[in-house]
Computed example of a mutant assay.
Amino acid sequence: MTFHNVLTHQSQRPITQPHFFILSKGKNAGKPLKESCPNCFLITVKTEEETENLYWIAYFLWKANFWHQFQIGSVIPFIRITTFKSCFRDEVHKAYKQHQKHLDFVKRIQQLEALQNHYSKTIEQIEKLKWALLQNQLR
């Protein structure tokens, strides 16, 4: 089991431990981030391996719309840090009970993400080629 600490991110606070961020406000509240933004939580751990494991747990929760049930606020939805801490801790415990299954799942998702990035770049290149052909035809 891993120990993690969840704090409200403050840009002036120095961060020396391995970490990642979780968006705390807006429709994408709960989304894990590698880089900070103004409205986010900071999650620190002891090792890079734990950072990667917790990042993917947070990613799965966000993609499954897990945090929508905990969002409050009528104009700008947000998640309270106390709610996030307790729910995230519980979900991390569940994932670590089936740690090998979790690691296999992460590996499969990473492969799909790589494939998606490859296809996105291919589509982008096709769009550029179409644009170049159209520009050439108009001359």
Rank of each mutant, 00 (worst) to 15 (best):
R139Y: 14
Q69N: 04
A132C: 11
Y96S: 11
R108Y: 10
T16D: 03
Q98A: 03
V106Y: 06
F20L: 05
K85G: 06
F20K: 12
T47D: 02
L133Q: 04
G73V: 12
H118Y: 15
N65L: 12
Q69M: 10
N28I: 01
G30C: 03
Q71W: 00
K27I: 14
I79Q: 02
E50L: 05
I76D: 04
K46Q: 11
L112F: 10
F20Y: 06
K31P: 00
T8F: 12
Y59H: 11
Q137M: 15
I126C: 01
L54F: 09
Q116I: 14
L33V: 01
T51A: 10
F60M: 07
P18W: 01
H68R: 13
I72Q: 09
P77S: 11
G26R: 02
H68I: 13
F78P: 02
Q137K: 15
Q69S: 11
W67H: 06
C37I: 15
F84E: 06
L138D: 10
S11W: 03
S24G: 14
V92G: 00
K130H: 07
N117C: 06
N5L: 06
V106R: 12
E48C: 00
E113R: 01
F3A: 15
L33M: 13
Q110L: 15
Q17E: 07
V75E: 05
I81Q: 04
H4C: 08
Q111A: 12
